[in-house]
Design a binder for these strands. Structure first.
Lengths: 148, 148
DNA sequence: GCTTGACCTCAAGTTAAGTTGAGCTTGTAA
DNA sequence: TTACAAGCTCAACTTAACTTGAGGTCAAGC
C-alpha cells in the first residue's frame, strides 16, 4: 500500500464528512489547497483535515466562508497551522461567539420581559415598539432591533 | 383627513422600518395581509404593525420566514393576535432562543477548552476530532458538530 | 485489456430573503 | 386639471454556499 500521507478528494470527503463538491468549492474559494497527480487528480496533505475541521467549526459558529478565509489567510502562507495559529483563531472566534451569545441573551430577555410583564397590550411592548421609535426618529435607517 | 385606521404600504414601511418591497414579499409569503382600494392599492389594518414587528423580532432571533409563517398560521385565522397569542409565540421563541444560546455556549466552551488545555496538538482536540469520529462511525450522515 | 468506480471541468440550478427596474396606474395638492 | 409622488405587477438580479448534471478521463482489479 502506498504511504497514507496523501489523500484523495473522496477520502477527505469521507473523513471530514464534507461532500466532494463542497471540497472543490472550498478550493475555488482558496480555503484549502491540493496538488495534482500526473493524471490531474487532486491529492491532499493530511493537514487538510485540520483545515476542513476548522472551517466546519467556524461555520457552525456562524462565521461566513469569507470570514473564515480571511482568518486562514492570516496564517503564514502555505504553512500547516501550528498550535499557536489555532490558538489565535480560536481565541478570536471565541470572542465572536461571546458577542453573539450576549446579543441573543438580550433578545431573549426582551422576550421574557414581554411575557412576564404587563406590556402584553403589545402596543407598549418594548420590543415591539423599537421599530416604531426608529421610524419616528426619522430615517429608514435599518438599525437592527437589538442594541449593540 | 381620512381616519387613521388604514395604512398605505408606504406608511407601514416607514413605521415598521421595513422596505416596501419586503412588505410585498411578506405578503406573497402569506405573513401579512392587506385588502385593496378600488384603485388596487394595498391598505393595511393597524395590526399589521404588530405582525411585522413580530416577524422582525423572530428573524432577529434567527427564525426563518417559513418558521415564522408556520407560527403565525397557528393563530386563529385572520384574527388580530391577542396578548394570549403573542404570549404563546414569544414563549415558544424564547425556548428556541434558549436552545440556540446553549448550543453556542457549548461551542464556545469547546473552543475555550481547546485554547486552555494541552490539546493544542490539534490532533487530539475534541472539537477537531468530532468530524473524524463521525466518519469512522460509518456514514456521511451530515450530523452537526454540536451535540443536540 | 476491459470494466467500473472515482475524478475532472464547467455550467446551471437551488434556497432564502429580498432588491431593482421597467412600464403602467392612482391619488392628491397646487 | 395637471403634475408628480406613491402604488402596482412582473421579471430578473443578488449573495452565500453549495449541489446537480453533462460529458469526458483515470486507475485498479479481474
Amino acid at each position: 500500500m502506498a504511504p497514507v500521507t496523501e489523500l484523495t478528494v473522496g477520502q477527505v470527503a469521507q473523513r471530514s464528512g464534507v461532500a466532494v463538491s463542497a471540497l472543490h468549492f472550498y478550493e475555488t474559494r482558496g480555503l484549502i489547497r491540493s496538488h495534482r497527480t500526473s493524471g490531474n487528480q487532486r491529492r491532499y496533505g493530511r493537514d487538510v483535515l485540520r483545515r476542513v475541521a476548522i472551517i466546519r467549526i467556524a461555520q457552525e459558529v456562524g462565521i461566513s466562508l469569507a470570514g473564515i478565509g480571511a482568518a486562514l489567510q492570516s496564517l503564514p502562507e502555505g504553512r500547516t497551522p501550528t498550535r499557536e495559529d489555532w490558538n489565535l483563531l480560536s481565541t478570536a472566534w471565541c470572542d465572536e461567539l461571546d458577542q453573539k451569545i450576549s446579543q441573543l441573551k438580550k433578545l431573549r430577555d426582551g422576550l421574557t420581559d414581554c411575557i412576564g410583564c404587563g406590556c402584553m397590550s403589545i402596543d407598549k411592548c418594548p420590543l415591539r415598539n423599537k421599530d416604531d421609535r426608529l421610524a419616528r426618529e426619522g430615517t429608514g435607517a435599518r438599525r437592527l432591533l437589538v442594541e449593540r
